[in-house]
């Protein structure tokens, strides 16, 4: 008899909790996956594809689905750290297979050599190159993300990746890097 009561009690409890859980599952359903947005916000948006995905957002989706967080050379260490924080993972060094975190660069078109083929325009993921067919092109360096996707398509090889010049306002207190003039 007592066994019956025990079973009954357990069964009732199970039913009750089941109902609560079921209600909660409907009531507190998460609509979208904001994680991808958050990851995408961290990625540098160079759209360079070095991670092996066509763009930053696909990579963000891949990370959300469990891909490694160390595949973004343009973002470098700080991006990996932020991703690690967000994902609750341990930060790891950049995966060299995807390239290395170089100095920041922008594309520069040697304009006298440009033949106006528009191939770079089509290659640029952020529309940072202006020009028309048979007109020489130029890079809006403000908009250039330095992804170097325009370099390969150029048939005349007139695009260079130029390191961004340090100015007094973008200087980051690298005291040990100051060239010191010798005085005699």
């Amino acid at each position: 008899m007592s066994l019956l009561y025990a079973l009954l009690a357990i069964g009732l409890l199970a039913l009750l909790f089941g109902l609560i859980l079921g209600y909660a599952a409907v009531r507190f359903k998460v609509e979208s996956d904001p994680l991808v947005e958050q990851i995408d916000a961290i990625l540098p948006q160079t759209q360079c594809g070095q991670c092996g995905y066509p763009g930053c957002r696909p990579y963000a989706e891949a990370i959300a689905n469990g891909d490694e967080i160390n595949k973004c050379p343009p973002g470098g260490e700080s991006t990996i750290r932020q991703l690690a924080d967000l994902m609750g993972l341990e930060a790891k060094p950049l995966d060299d297979a995807h390239g290395s975190n170089d100095v920041k660069k922008v594309a520069f078109i040697r304009e006298d050599e440009c033949i106006g083929c528009t191939k770079c325009i089509q290659a640029c993921p952020v529309d940072a190159i202006v020009g028309a067919s048979k007109q020489m092109h130029t890079v809006i360096s403000e908009e250039c993300t330095g992804c170097d996707l325009c370099v390969d398509p150029c048939p005349v090889d007139c695009i260079d990746m130029v390191p961004v010049k340090v100015t007094a306002s973008s200087w980051r207190w690298q005291l040990d890097a100051i060239p010191v003039k010798t005085i005699d």
Partner: peptide, 14 residues
């Protein structure tokens, strides 16, 4: 040994 991952092209070449 270090592997190199193929880079994805974001946009089609002309």
């Amino acid at each position: 040994p270090a592997k190199v991952v193929q880079r994805a092209r974001i946009t089609a070449e002309s």
